[in-house]
């Protein structure tokens, strides 16, 4: 029973990280219909900026995380302006290729600057606490709590502010929103900023329990795609629920099937889903 509880909590932590990454991906997809393959690279850069701000500048963890949000959010906005905005009238295949180009560039750049080594990130949250028969580090608790707080903040932003409402409106109907006088460019830039910021937060809170290295975004982005297909491309609640579904399936799969193949669960899930429903689960009907 303890093992199960422990694994469920693990699922909750992994799921929290997945949800945050998937949220950024789904917001961008909702607005611009771009599957941003470079999102994993943003996540990776987020991890590095936080780590390097702490180690080289000696700044505290949360300040470093804030820096990371600004830097990665900024990179994401630049991506939108310099690349995706230019390609808005191109065939969809071009967006994907450009995103792949950005991914390759960012990854190699980080490798050039900071090397290909695996680095660990130490934070003040390495105490061990026990409750309900499970033993966890406070970092894992931080992950869960931070993720929930960020999701609540995002929800409030999308529901209660004008510009947040504009993001939702635009993801539902681009042209309609445009006609009502929403500045589509501003919305797109803001969406990219939020998307990058979410990736930076996800990387900053998860790096202490994983490692920081140039390829750290590969699996995360692939899984985030699986999640938003499960949850519906462009759907915010779908990304959150999908993230936790995947987190739990993986931690349970690792316990009861094999930890060697726990990474494959996401992809088998995806292949199964798209085999049955080629439009993804919860696809909106054709117009």
């Amino acid at each position: 029973m303890d093992v199960l509880a422990q694994q469920l909590f693990n699922g909750l932590t992994i799921g929290s990280v997945y949800s945050l990454v998937a949220l950024g991906l789904t917001l961008v997809y909702g607005i611009l219909h771009i599957p941003n393959f470079a999102h994993g690279a943003l996540y990776m850069v987020g991890g590095y900026v936080t780590l390097m701000t702490m180690t080289t500048l000696g700044l505290p963890y949360f300040v470093a995380m804030f820096m990371s949000i600004l830097v990665v959010g900024g990179i994401a906005v630049l991506m939108e302006r310099l690349v995706f905005h230019q390609l808005r009238h191109s065939p969809p295949i071009h967006d994907k290729i450009a995103a792949i180009g950005l991914l390759l560039f960012l990854e190699t750049l980080v490798q050039l600057i900071w090397g290909a080594d695996y680095r660990s990130m130490t934070t003040p949250f390495d105490d061990i606490v026990s409750f309900l028969g499970i033993t966890v580090t406070t970092q894992r608790i931080l992950i869960v709590v931070a993720a929930v707080l960020v999701m609540i903040a995002l929800h409030l932003f999308l529901k209660k502010t004008m510009i947040g409402a504009a993001i939702i409106a635009m993801s539902q109907n681009r042209e309609g929103a445009f006609l009502q006088g929403i500045n589509a460019n501003r919305v797109a830039m803001l969406t990219f900023f939020i998307s990058g910021g979410l990736a930076a937060i996800a990387a900053s809170i998860s790096s202490p329990i994983n490692l920081v290295y140039p390829g750290m975004g590969h699996l995360v982005i692939l899984k985030a795609f699986v999640i938003i297909i499960i949850g519906g491309m462009g759907s915010v609640p779908g990304a959150i629920i999908g993230g936790y579904i995947l987190g739990f399936s993986e931690s349970l799969g690792a316990t009861f099937i094999s930890s060697d193949y726990s990474d494959i669960i996401a992809f088998v899930l995806l292949v199964a889903i798209l085999t049955v429903k080629p439009q993804g689960l919860f696809a909106k009907g054709a117009h």
């Binding site: 390609l87 190699t108 490798q111």
Partner: peptide
């Protein structure tokens, strides 16, 4: 070999924008 993508990454982006 190791850093080729530093050039090819932006090259991909440049090509799809200007010479698809």
């Amino acid at each position: 070999e190791e850093y080729r993508m530093l050039i090819f990454g932006p090259l991909l982006v440049f090509l799809v924008i200007f010479y698809p």
